[in-house]
Amino acid sequence: MKSSILYAGAALACALGLSACGGGSGDLPLTVTIAGGVTKEGLVLVNQSNGDEIAVPAGASTVQFKKYLSTDDEFNISYKSLPSNVSACTFSNNKARANYYTVYTTVPTVFCTIKTHTLSVTVIGLTGTGLELVNGSNRKVVTAADASQPVPIGDIPEDGAYGVTILNQPDTQTCTISGGTGTMTATGPGTTPVVTCGPKTQ
């Protein structure tokens, strides 16, 4: 009778702590690193091996699936949907069998590419030379010939901010800018930057 009680107790302990008794432990978290910057809601990841899904919050650097895995469980991570401002996402280490190494060392990673759109500036009345515009790290020297059509000044991530300013005035004129700051939308800048040049002011 005593040995039966001990056996029953061991079986209960095994049920409560599977990792101590062999078999699937069910204690391995499946965490994904978010690289490339997800700036908008809409990215949903799915573990195709068990159907577990997780929505990635905007700005998140990591997410963890709700279902824990047992040792040797297969996982295969892909995306179910993308944010509207993302063109594509790629993965590394997203398909393997779960163990300490695959979930803690070679962590699955998703890299998403944000759509970009060209920011152009309308320049009116420029006759002088030396006008230079700047937006972030992008600089553009504008000539009178350039000003015959919208002047591109770099690509801006969709939903990203921009701020065009005049870095240098032309030699014989003074220029002002309107609509220089805004947010890039799916169809172009929220406001079109317009540079207007006229007689030089003192």
Rank of each mutant, 00 (worst) to 15 (best):
K2Q: 10
K2E: 14
S3F: 11
S3W: 11
S3E: 13
S4L: 11
I5T: 11
L6E: 12
G9W: 12
A11K: 14
L12C: 13
L12P: 10
L12D: 12
L12F: 15
C14S: 15
L16I: 11
G17T: 13
C21W: 14
G24P: 11
L28S: 00
P29W: 08
P29K: 01
L30P: 00
T33C: 12
I34R: 01
G37S: 07
K40L: 13
E41L: 15
G42F: 00
G42R: 01
L45Q: 04
V46F: 08
V46W: 11
V46H: 08
Q48H: 13
Q48K: 15
Q48G: 08
G51V: 08
G51W: 07
D52K: 04
I54A: 09
P57Y: 00
A58Y: 02
S61I: 02
S61G: 12
V63K: 01
Q64A: 01
Q64S: 05
F65R: 01
K66W: 07
L69Q: 08
L69M: 08
S70A: 14
F75L: 03
K80Q: 06
S81Q: 06
S81L: 03
P83V: 11
P83W: 04
S84R: 13
V86C: 06
S87L: 06
S87D: 07
C89P: 04
C89E: 00
T90I: 15
T90K: 09
N94E: 03
K95N: 11
A96R: 11
Y101R: 14
T102Q: 05
V103T: 07
V107P: 03
V107Y: 01
P108I: 05
T109C: 08
V110E: 07
V110P: 03
K115D: 08
T116K: 05
T116S: 00
L119T: 01
V121A: 04
V121S: 04
T122E: 14
I124F: 12
L126I: 08
L126A: 05
L126P: 04
G130A: 07
G130Y: 03
L133W: 06
L133D: 03
N135A: 10
N135G: 07
G136H: 05
K140P: 07
K140I: 06
A144G: 12
A144V: 14
D146W: 04
S148I: 15
S148V: 15
Q149K: 14
V151G: 00
P152N: 00
I153H: 02
D155S: 11
P157W: 05
P157Q: 07
P157K: 12
G160W: 02
A161P: 11
A161S: 14
G163K: 13
V164H: 03
L167K: 15
L167A: 15
N168Y: 13
T172C: 01
T172K: 05
Q173M: 08
T176A: 06
T181M: 12
T183G: 09
M184I: 06
T185R: 07
A186H: 09
A186K: 10
A186F: 10
T187D: 13
T187F: 13
G190F: 08
T191W: 07
P193G: 05
P193V: 04
V194L: 06
V194T: 10
C197Y: 00
G198W: 02
Q202G: 15
